[in-house]
Simulated scan of single mutants.
Amino acid sequence: MRLDVFLWHARLAKTRVLAQAMAVDGHLRIDGRAVDRSHHPVRVGNVLTFMTAGRVRVLRIEALPTRRGPPAEARECYQELIAG
């Protein structure tokens, strides 16, 4: 699944355009490696590290969502490792 689509479906970004911007700005990491493109593939088990709203978030992808569902469904797609 594309990184920007995952961020949008998992409700980590409000719009797909914002999800693309998060990926392109270079401040998002997948398994410790910087990402600079929105179409970078993500898989179950990948660890995402990024800043949002002035705090660092570290998430492990637990499942790939098939749609942009309700927030409770979206939270089941990842596990929060660090939120600070």
Results as ranks from 00 to 15, higher is better:
R43T: 10
V42W: 02
A21F: 08
V56M: 10
V44F: 02
V44G: 00
T49S: 12
T52Y: 01
H40A: 14
V24T: 14
A23V: 00
V17N: 11
S38P: 09
R37M: 11
A23G: 03
R33D: 07
D36C: 10
G45C: 09
F50E: 00
V35T: 10
A21C: 08
F50T: 01
N46E: 06
A21S: 15
S38H: 13
R33S: 13
D25H: 14
V44I: 12
A19V: 03
V44R: 05
A19W: 01
R16W: 07
L28M: 09
S38Y: 10
R37E: 11
A23D: 00
A21L: 14
A34R: 15
G45V: 04
R16Y: 07
L48E: 03
T52K: 12
A21E: 15
R16H: 03
V17L: 08
V24M: 07
H27V: 05
R33L: 12
V47S: 09
V24W: 02
D31I: 06
M22A: 10
T49D: 07
G32I: 08
A23R: 00
V17G: 10
R37F: 12
F50W: 05
R43V: 12
V56T: 15
G26M: 05
Q20H: 06
G32N: 10
G32Q: 10
H27C: 11
Q20S: 14
V44K: 01
H27T: 14
A21I: 11
R55D: 01
V35C: 11
S38F: 14
R43K: 14
H40T: 12
A53W: 01
D36W: 10
A23N: 01
A34G: 09
D25Q: 14
D36T: 15
L28N: 03
V44C: 02
F50L: 07
A21Q: 15
V56F: 02
H39R: 10
D25A: 10
M51E: 07
V44N: 01
V42A: 07
F50D: 00
A34E: 09
R43C: 12
V56H: 03
D25K: 14
G54K: 04
A19K: 01
V47H: 08
M51K: 10
A53C: 02
R55Q: 08
R43M: 11
V47L: 10
D36V: 15
R16C: 04
G26L: 03
L18W: 04
V47P: 01
Q20L: 05
A34Q: 13
G26S: 08
L28K: 05
F50P: 00
N46R: 03
I30F: 09
F50G: 00
D36I: 15
T49L: 00
D31G: 15
N46C: 10
H39A: 15
T52N: 03
H27N: 14
F50A: 00
R43E: 12
V17F: 08
A19P: 00
R16S: 06
H40E: 11
A23M: 02
R37I: 12
N46F: 04
V42N: 02
V42F: 04
V56I: 13
V24S: 06
